[in-house]
Design a protein around this nucleic acid. Structure first.
Lengths: 129, 129
DNA sequence: GTATATTTGCAACACAGTCGCAAATATTAT
DNA sequence: ATAATATTTGCGACTGTGTTGCAAATATAC
């Protein structure tokens, strides 16, 4: 199982919740919220556990969170380490990474330094256009 | 008064709350949350009224909201109509617009169309660097 | 100044996310 | 495999953000 080896690699204990949540994220190419994860999980899992698990994944670098302009945080497996653009389709509501587009070349004004970026483009995705 | 003419121009009734909140926003160059607005207002104003007023301003195009990666929405007077970058200083916590940097040239993959963008860069601002 | 339309304050509510703590589960050592 | 220890889970309670219904207050139009 891929999920198991990822957990091992990050020295996280292999609990049922972590494995199921990780499997779910691995099989999706759109970002999921806590509620969406809960609804898709085959096992029962408490809200708090899902939040704690997601935070653990983010801290370990397994996943990253995506800011939603209108709604809860969503989570995806981290594939690209660079800052990339997130896209939200206003028709189907899906939020996904656009790893093709990397914005590391934004020139900030003098005296400003950057540690992190959140780029969310809202529009219509390929399927809905 | 500048605030009055702005309200008139957008055909909004000139209530005390709206004028005071608008004055406050006009005098700030950082984005403010509902709580920050409430604390700085000289008049008493209910939470709900502040939220409703801010939403009215956003709908009218007087202000726009800025997504905070970790905290409530913040609001600023809309100066530039284009999509620009927002900057959050992790030292002083201020969130401000960087109208100098305009990103309208992001090329989305085929089939994707854009209607709106939210760009938040997190780092250290000029004053705190 | 009066009538009508809009806005306000209050209270209640919905929802996202966190935390403490005891019970359950996983890991480690024997 | 079993026992001891460390970690995680579920539950409940809680905080904070933002919204809404409704009656009272205020602004606008006449």
């Amino acid at each position: 199982m891929k999920a198991i080896s990822i957990l091992e690699h990050h020295q996280l204990s292999r609990t049922e919740s972590r494995m199921e949540i990780l499997e779910l994220l691995l099989n999706k190419n759109v970002a999921l919220s806590e509620k969406e994860i809960k609804d898709e999980l085959s096992i029962k899992c408490d809200r708090a556990t899902i939040y704690r698990t997601l935070n653990t994944f983010v801290k370990s670098g397994i996943a990253h969170s995506i800011i939603n302009n209108d709604g809860p945080l969503k989570y995806v497996i981290k594939k690209a380490p660079e800052d990339h653009v997130h896209f939200k389709c206003q028709v189907c509501g899906h939020i996904m990474c656009l790893p093709q587009i990397i914005i590391d070349k934004i020139e900030l004004p003098d005296g400003f330094t950057r540690t992190e970026s959140n780029f969310l483009v809202i529009g219509t995705c390929k399927n809905c256009n």
